[in-house]
Design a protein around this nucleic acid. Structure first.
Lengths: 221, 221
DNA sequence: CAATCCCTTACAGATTTCCGTAAGGGATTG
DNA sequence: CAATCCCTTACGGAAATCTGTAAGGGATTG
């Protein structure tokens, strides 16, 4: 079994649950937990340089923003950074996200080894995932089937992201800037304009106020 | 200290972390965890009827939907149900939500005793919260200031009327015209501007999009 | 290969929002 | 009565929204 495992997860209580399970059910010797992507990466790099690398990284995808400016702010970035240091380290993602469309790229692009969808029995799942990954197999939460990734939504993930930001008071200019910073494309103000305008037609809204109100009332936001 | 505590939280790993903390740091004798609102309520009711009631309920607000149809699907509903059985049981909510506008009603309407915002150090907070609540005080995560929403400045009919129109996509010019036609005063565009701006401050909204979204989510629109 | 479609982007103009300043009127108070 | 406060209203400027036009690129098709 793995001897050195690093956990990045910003919910302290969740974190504690994972550590406990790993200790008691897998007898892993060294378990380090970090609450921030940055510190997690630093610890990873340090251990690698010392010649005592971590063998497995368990990370969430989303980390709450803090007042402190951080270089790494998402699990995705952390994985990229880690991959840049050590190609061979196993990675298991443990997140709430259950959209196959978002998870698939993690395997194809980020080369992760396992995905556990946070939920009622995720702790058991995580233990299974670690077993599988240790034996060089991949693991995916059984309750989500990555095959049926193409459910026809009226609003795709991109639209939803924009609408959520708008509903939180961000301007299209700010949203455009954010998308650029996160290397998400398309990201021009013009395209955002177009996307939202199309939603006006689809949902029969007069303007953004109206659209936001409708979507929230429909539970889609 | 409390002797019987019930935890409702659908993330098994989070759950585990809480249980662990409660056991080791508070020496609570009986800790029951449930992953569903329904089963949590059943357990609560059963214990109450037996004359061995729970003294404290710790619950999340949102629970993932499942294929199984459930009578209770949110923490709010669970709290209501519990309150219907035992008025005296303490309730602490442990959730990701950090919008004071959503949290305040929990105290005023649901009569909860504590609120802990899930985050990096929420486990420590939860322990503090339990201490406070045990001594008949209320607890609120310090990082979110309920003051912004604490002066629950009731929106009057006039504000409500304007906001509803805005949410339906009317411009302030149109609203002003309508008010004039209906002989409702004040009715100038300028006054409408001012009224809405004041609501930005009161509800901590960045702009109209934000304000509408907040109010609808709070059920005030 | 050319025609076509679709998506992204830039840009421009009209409208709307947002925010500050300021004037006027009514009510209250010392 | 004067001073003050609050509410309404007008106005102006900066920023944002909304809409239309147009150019360019990639993918598809015949």
């Amino acid at each position: 079994m793995f001897k050195k495992v690093l956990i990045a997860e910003d919910f302290q209580d969740t974190n504690k649950g994972i550590v406990d399970a790993l200790e008691t059910r897998l007898q892993i010797e060294t378990i380090q937990e970090e609450l921030y992507c940055d510190t997690a990466f630093n610890r990873f790099k340090l251990a690698y340089d010392k010649g005592e690398p971590f063998e497995l990284l368990i990370t969430d995808l989303s980390f709450k923003e803090t007042h402190v400016k951080r270089r790494l702010t998402s699990g995705k970035e952390l994985i990229d950074a880690v991959r840049g240091v050590d190609e061979n380290c196993k990675v298991i993602v443990n997140s709430m996200i259950d959209d196959p469309g978002e998870i698939n790229p993690l395997f194809t692009d980020q080369k992760i080894n396992g995905y556990v969808c946070k939920g009622r029995y995720s702790l058991n799942e995580l233990v299974n995932a670690i077993h599988e990954v240790y034996q060089n197999r991949t693991y995916v939460s059984p309750n989500l089937n990555l095959n049926a990734a193409n459910a026809v939504h009226e609003m795709d993930k991109y639209d939803l992201m924009i609408l959520k930001d708008l509903a939180e008071g961000y301007t299209k200019k700010e949203i455009s800037a954010r998308l650029k910073k996160q290397n998400i494309s398309p990201n021009s103000e013009s395209t955002i304009d177009k996307k939202v305008s199309r939603l006006f037609d689809e949902f029969g809204a007069k303007n953004t106020h109206h659209l936001i109100a409708k979507l929230i009332k429909q539970g889609k936001l």
